[in-house]
């Protein structure tokens, strides 16, 4: 599915912005509107746009990781974040936080890791669905 040159060129500049925005949404989600779900969906939309402009194969290359692996990894990340408190001797899924703030990210704790897992999973699931369907049509 090749599209117009205008779209392709526009997308080239918009995509990085969208991806940065999605990352921004993920990180600030704990205190401002955003979070893993919204961030992951925005990123997925960016890749979907890319796929419409340049074709699925290009988009897959651009993503550079198989979406199936991506969402498995996301699920695993979320699971690990839930298991981490066990190491600290706390019940499953208790939020554990580092005392010191880290630049850019802010406070780091297992809920943030969990949110990153959600982000990766949502991105992986959405791209998987859209790429499979698009491939089907080609």
């Amino acid at each position: 599915m090749k599209s117009s040159l205008i779209l392709a060129t526009t997308v080239k500049y918009i995509i990085p912005l969208l991806l940065i925005f999605s990352f921004f949404l993920l990180l600030r989600g704990h205190n401002e509107p955003g979070g893993g779900f919204a961030g992951g969906l925005v990123a997925a939309a960016a890749y979907a746009l890319y796929a419409i402009a340049n074709g699925v194969e290009e988009a897959e290359k651009f993503l550079s990781i198989e979406p199936l692996k991506l969402f498995s990894f996301g699920l695993l990340t979320a699971l690990i974040s839930a298991l981490l408190p066990l190491l600290a001797g706390k019940p499953f899924m208790t939020g554990v936080w580092l005392d010191n703030k880290i630049p850019v990210i802010g406070k780091l704790g297992t809920p943030i890791i969990f949110d990153v897992g959600v982000y990766l999973l949502v991105l992986g699931v959405s791209t998987k669905i859209i790429f499979s369907l698009a491939q089907e049509e080609e």
Binding site: F37, V122, V125, S126, I129
Partner: peptide, 10 residues
């Protein structure tokens, strides 16, 4: 609702 929206998409 937030999770319902995403699940709905799936």
């Amino acid at each position: 609702i937030l999770t319902a929206i995403v699940i709905g998409f799936g």
